[in-house]
Amino acid sequence: MVSFDFTYHRPSSIEEAVQLFASLQRQGKTPIYYSGGTEIITLSRLNLVFADAVIDIKHIPECQSFDISQNQLVLGTALTLTAIEETNAFPLLAKAASEIADRTARNQITLGGNICGQIFYRETVLPLLLVDSDIVIAGKSGVQQRPIHEVFQQSIQLQPGEFLVQVKMNAAYLTMPHVHMKRRKQGKVGYPLVTVSALKKGNELRTAFSGVCPFPFRSPKVEEMLNARHLPIDARIDYALQQLPEPILDDIEGSAEYRLFVLKNTLWDILTELEEAER
């Protein structure tokens, strides 16, 4: 139950959405883009979100696009996690999506919502970071495509009135060797203790993390250490873990010490799995 009131708007084109946002703002309102709505509804119940107008982007055709061509995969941000999982165009992303929440919730949670949400795990971002994807953003100045590394730094960096339309990635990445591991405190449903996505481009190992810090990230320094193939795996992991962007999380999912233990083991599993595959 949302205890405050808002108006609901359902634009059918990008332009309409952007204009709506601007005009609502001019009327002194606080509009918010609305995709799956799951986070907006559940957090506003706890007064952690406020809006007096919501703009549902699910009915914008571009946001629902699913195009796979020879060299590019285009995913609309309003696709549900279930759709991403079941179409399986990008197996690593499909795997990451399939581990979030539970299936019924995934019928509602969207890709864009997961990337832009407040709940800081944002696990679908990990594969997107690994494949250097591009993000299509609509805003006052029209529609533009920008590298994810530019617009996603810990969280999505948008100007007021901007929203995510699509995510694009080079098809060459889709079939590269990869692993996704989500470790929970206990059981098969729930937030991650740590989640690691990894992809191998040639000999280069790429890794992205969630649950380790209060934001998902990919770190060149961490990757440099993990790729220091002249060292034994243990040492590579130890050095890599000294390069985390922030001290490791310490919260109700697990203490910092224990997380570190789990993260080490997870990295070990990932490195051995991907490097064993080489032989």
């Binding site: 799951t38 509804i41 559940t42 019924t104 019928n107």
Partner: peptide, 22 residues
Amino acid sequence: LNGDCGACTVLMDKTPIKSCMI
């Protein structure tokens, strides 16, 4: 009312959804 328990599940165009989150 938080999407966690599934007691509110209904079908929308044959797909199960949690009706507390829509």
